[in-house]
Write a protein that binds this DNA or RNA. Sequence first.
DNA 1: TATTTCCTAACGACCGTTAGGAAGGTGAAA
DNA 2: TTTCACCTTCCTAACGGTCGTTAGGAAATA
Lengths: 192, 192
Amino acid sequence: MKATLLLETALKHFAEEGYEGASLSKIAEEVGIKKPSIYAHYKSKDDLFMSALHYSMESQKTQMASYFNLSRHQPLDKVLSGYFHWFAKETDENVQMKFIIRTAYFPPLKLEKEVGQLFDPFLDDMHRHLTRLLRERERHQKVLYEDDYSKAALAFLTIAEGTMTELVYSGQEQYEKRFEAIWPIFWRGLAL
Amino acid sequence: MKATLLLETALKHFAEEGYEGASLSKIAEEVGIKKPSIYAHYKSKDDLFMSALHYSMESQKTQMASYFNLSRHQPLDKVLSGYFHWFAKETDENVQMKFIIRTAYFPPLKLEKEVGQLFDPFLDDMHRHLTRLLRERERHQKVLYEDDYSKAALAFLTIAEGTMTELVYSGQEQYEKRFEAIWPIFWRGLAL
DNA sequence: TATTTCCTAACGACCGTTAGGAAGGTGAAA
DNA sequence: TTTCACCTTCCTAACGGTCGTTAGGAAATA
């Protein structure tokens, strides 16, 4: 399926060079077709970009749901800390996550609105998963903000994003160091 | 001084549209000169970009040093939490910080090396400031990782980046909520 | 007078995009 | 079973536009 290959190649280029930096010629070249052939599959660069974004986010959403499902019998601290490692390992060489993060933080100005409309439900989804997780565990593991689990979920998301970003930015090794530095503090501060 | 105005205008455009997205024509237009006149001051777009980056980082380094100096009589938790707000203020109001962050995470590929050489000392500087701060306060405020303050500093930087990232992405209001969620956990986990 | 700063004009390169058509497969009608 | 129309997918050629950059000269400044 050339269409999927095209999408995945495009998303790699968008992740590494940004919307403006990525060139349709180079993408086509890597796929092994000519530039105008792209238009047989997508009606514009914007269309290709938004399709790649949609594709990445769906894929990440699926992975996230599957992680929470797999780890549902683990103790809370394992679920939470494992969540980091899961993403670090499972994220297809981190290209998808890199693309998502780059686009979330620095969207192409002309697509800012559309991008936002895709992202808001995505973040809500993550937040909701975490909030529900914390509530489900309240009988076995008390945490800070017992009256407002969404607040604890937000705190977790913050350090997740901090370390994720580091993963994208300076690679696995620095990421491991950060994780080891932050996790004991976080868990010690969260658990009651 | 047209040269400085040119630099500041350029850095604003680079911050908002990225290296590839920013156009010399638009920058010149905003400054009130014609595009080729830029070349009387900078010998290429790369030169302009790197000059703007250098300028921003020097400026931010000065401000950071001055923050640590001003707050040196505050208790540790005030210094640290105040650092967040300072950082937030810089990122939100000052395009310089946005430019720095964007360039650090997603540099133009062709300038990746040069950019890295500028950034490594910059990050070391931040890390060193924090490490020294923690060591200076050890008699008044014990913290986790007493034997390795640089680790505690790293943890702090992670949270700072996580919240700041949120600031770039969804603005002051969301940022405040994140700060309120994460700070009590962090301080409770860090302080002995 | 010498240098800096700006201009107009124009360069070649690349951009995203469209036109128009060839090749190949699919499926229904003859 | 053959034929024909219809897609889809790819191509070459070329479009108008913008990009960063240079040449060469005028104006301002020192």
